[in-house]
Each structure stands twice: as structure tokens, then as C-alpha cells.
């Protein structure tokens, strides 16, 4: 009765609830979409770079920021609003709740990422292979969603703003280190070394390759790296939350 699939169904129920509650709010859209757009504009304006070359960065950032927009604040928010204990008292594992939180970040990230993607098609810019781009987008969004929930595991705070701020401390440096603005291929060797430990690198690398044919890693490696990061993040998120969740019960 409570097999893996049954628990997964309950994760979906939790994801649906999250989307209803947390993702229907204005600031979320703002952070996820408008914010990366302005960041990109600030970077590219006045530099005389062809529109096409801004796309990889824009797609990379939008995907990254939307998928990680709400994730860090869900668990602290549930702690604060006293719904966490109510939820944990039901026949769901901690992992089920965590996967539910990841899935809601994933679904939201995916939906919003469609916007810059649609823009590229609107401007008549074609990726080399649309299916591969879509697959890459899916796995990258899942990876970032897992990372976002991981960022709320420690410290076990009940203040959403604290965990948002702490997650920004991780998110912003990642953007600058991941070949978003400058393709990995053009980074100095130490830049390449640092970039190689960021999951975002492999996604932007994939997008550079698919739009401008300017990738650094083989496409297969990009995929493998993203899958590996996703598995590690998911596992770590569940384990860490299992460790810290009891501390959230006041």
C-alpha cells in the first residue's frame, strides 16, 4: 500500500499544494524572470554583442533563478506557519515531502523557462537540436530544484528571509562562475577549474553549443554531469532534512 509509487503520488500532492500556495505570488515571478532579464541586460547593454550570443546566458540564468526561486523558503515557511508538524503527522516520509518541494520547484522552473525559449524562436533563432535542448532543460531544472531545497536544509531556521539570503550567497557566485556571461571555452584555466564544480556550467555549456556551436565539454559529459549533480543533490537534500527536521519542531 505504501510502496514507492504510493509515496511518489503523495509527493505530487505536496507539489500541487506548493504551487497553489507559494508560486502564485507576485514576488516569485519577479525573482524568477524579471530579475535575470535585468541582470542580463545590465551585462550586455553597450557591449555590442549580437542578440544570439546573449541567449545562452539568458536561458541559463532564467532556468537557474526560476528553479531556485522558492525552494529555499518552503521548509522554513512551513516551520514558521506551523504547517510542518501537521504535514509530518500524516503517512508521508520526510523524503516524500522533500521530493514534493523539489517537484514544485521543477514544474515552476520548467514553465517559466519556456518564456525565453519561446523568445528565441520568435526571433527566428534556431537551436541545432531542439529535442536535446528540451531534454537538457528538463534535467537542468530538476538539478537546480534539488539544489534549491538543499539550500534550506541547514541551518534549520524558521525565517524564510534568512534562508533566501543564505541561498543567494550560493546562487550569485555560481552565476558568475558558470560561463553564463563568458563561455567556458574562453575562460582562463583557473576559471575553467572553478566552473567545473558548478552544475550551472554544464547547462550553459550545453546551451552555448546548441545555439552557437561554442561548447567546451562534449554534450554527453554535460548530460552526465547534470544527472550526477541531480542524484547527489536529491540524496543529500533528503538526508540533510531528515537530520535537521526534528530541530524545527519547537
Amino acid at each position: 500500500m505504501n510502496t514507492f509509487t504510493e509515496q511518489f503520488k503523495r509527493s505530487l500532492v505536496i507539489a500541487e499544494k506548493n504551487i497553489k500556495i507559494y508560486y502564485s505570488k507576485g514576488p516569485v515571478i519577479l525573482f524568477g524572470l524579471v530579475f535575470p532579464l535585468f541582470l542580463a541586460l545590465a551585462f550586455y547593454i553597450g557591449r555590442n554583442i549580437p542578440l544570439k550570443e546573449t541567449l545562452p546566458g539568458l536561458i541559463g540564468m532564467t532556468t537557474f533563478f526560476t528553479a531556485t526561486a522558492v525552494g529555499p523558503s518552503i521548509v522554513p515557511w512551513e516551520t514558521r506557519s506551523k504547517t510542518l508538524e501537521m504535514l509530518l503527522s500524516r503517512p508521508v516520509a520526510i523524503g516524500t515531502i522533500i521530493v514534493g518541494d523539489m517537484l514544485s520547484s521543477f514544474i515552476f522552473g520548467l514553465i517559466i523557462s519556456v518564456i525565453p525559449l519561446a523568445l528565441t524562436l520568435f526571433w527566428g533563432i534556431q537551436p541545432l537540436n531542439f529535442i536535446i535542448l528540451l531534454l537538457g532543460l528538463i534535467i537542468a531544472t530538476l538539478c537546480f530544484a534539488a539544489l534549491s531545497v538543499l539550500l534550506s536544509a541547514y541551518p534549520p531556521t524558521d525565517i524564510p528571509a534568512t534562508s533566501m539570503m543564505l541561498s543567494s550567497l550560493v546562487k550569485f557566485p555560481l552565476v558568475f562562475l558558470s560561463g553564463v556571461f563568458i563561455p567556458v571555452a574562453q575562460l582562463p584555466y583557473w576559471g575553467k577549474a572553478i566552473a567545473s564544480i558548478s552544475p550551472l556550467t554544464y547547462f550553459t555549456d550545453m546551451v552555448w553549443k546548441l545555439f552557437i556551436n561554442n561548447g567546451f565539454y562534449p554534450l554527453a559529459l554535460d548530460f552526465l554531469a547534470l544527472i550526477a549533480f541531480t542524484v547527489v543533490f536529491t540524496f543529500a537534500t533528503i538526508k540533510l532534512h531528515e537530520k535537521t527536521l526534528a530541530k524545527r519542531l519547537s
Binding site: I21, S81, K82, T83, E85, S89
Partner: peptide, 10 residues
């Protein structure tokens, strides 16, 4: 539970 709440946004 002693410390619990329904979802106020639902």
C-alpha cells in the same frame, strides 16, 4: 499536534 495550523492560503 499541539503546534499546528491549517494552510491559511488555502
Amino acid at each position: 499536534p499541539e503546534v499546528s495550523n491549517a494552510y491559511v492560503d488555502l
